[in-house]
Amino acid sequence: MKKFVLGLTCGFALTATTAVYASDTLQVYLFPAMYVFNGQSKALDSEYTTLNFNGHAYVPVRWVAENLGKLVKYEHYTKTISIVNTNLTEELVLDKDFLIIASQGKIKGIEFGIGSNKNELIQKWGEPHEIGTWSTEFYRWHSYHFFFWEPDGNAGSIRVSGNVIPYRLNEIRDFIGEPLDEGEGVDGGWSYVYHAGDYQVFFTADSKESQIRYLNLKKK
């Protein structure tokens, strides 16, 4: 294992942290470990490293928590790291209630919906896992992308993707009924469109027989 010496510092790879250096030093070793989460093997992301210090493995708490489906928050003033449960990695349940809740601008089981402010989400869920742009800025927490409209920074649409939608497109009719419309998706594939009050829900897959790639909830 490769050895190196570094200043004593706070060993948490969190977005909002600031390293504080002291005169003391630690002698640590790179530790190329593989991790298994609920039977699934996973290597550390490229920006993370496992360290061995005095026979103990040190790994970024954020990476471990997120792979367990949890959210991590860091409070700078109190130097407190919080790890909390979340519904953001649980499978969506598609039933009649799904469209009733969608008519309120929300995804079933998720507390924040369309109109929620960006700062509200950060305060409750911590820093996003990704910030990017698809026609407008989005913040991603696990499989949920929230698109925020300027200048207010309120959520204008929500996109859900990944394994939290374990359904094929042709199964959707059985769970929530006939779509109002269907056709080619905006980025290819095939979409079913449902109306829920002032909102629309788009389910998109590569084909009618394929697993859903994502759903979008937005105002009409």
Results as ranks from 00 to 15, higher is better:
Pro128Asp: 06
Lys3Gly: 09
Glu120Pro: 01
Val164Gln: 03
Ser161Lys: 05
Phe98Glu: 02
Arg168Trp: 10
Ala43Asp: 15
Ser191Val: 05
Phe202Ile: 08
Gln211Pro: 03
Asn67Ala: 05
Asp97His: 06
Asp24Tyr: 09
Pro179Ser: 11
Ser135Ala: 00
Phe31Ser: 04
Phe112Leu: 10
Gly153Gln: 03
Val93Asp: 02
Ala13Arg: 14
Asp97Asn: 11
Met1Ile: 08
Lys219Ser: 11
His129Cys: 01
Lys218Leu: 11
Phe147Gln: 05
Arg168Tyr: 10
Val84Gln: 10
Phe12Asp: 02
Thr86Trp: 07
Tyr192Pro: 01
Ala65Ile: 10
Ser116Gly: 09
His145Glu: 05
Ser116Met: 02
Arg140His: 02
Thr80Arg: 09
Pro60Ser: 12
Glu75Met: 04
Ser207Trp: 14
Arg173Met: 12
Thr136Val: 07
Gly132Trp: 06
Gly7Ser: 06
Gly126Lys: 14
Asp45Met: 04
Gly162His: 08
Val186Gln: 12
Phe12His: 06
Asp45Trp: 00
Phe147Asn: 03
Ala155Ile: 04
Leu8Cys: 06
Lys218Ala: 13
Ala102Leu: 08
Val201Asn: 05
Thr49His: 15
Gly183Cys: 02
Ile101Trp: 07
His56Ser: 10
His195Asn: 10
Val193Asn: 10
Tyr77Gly: 14
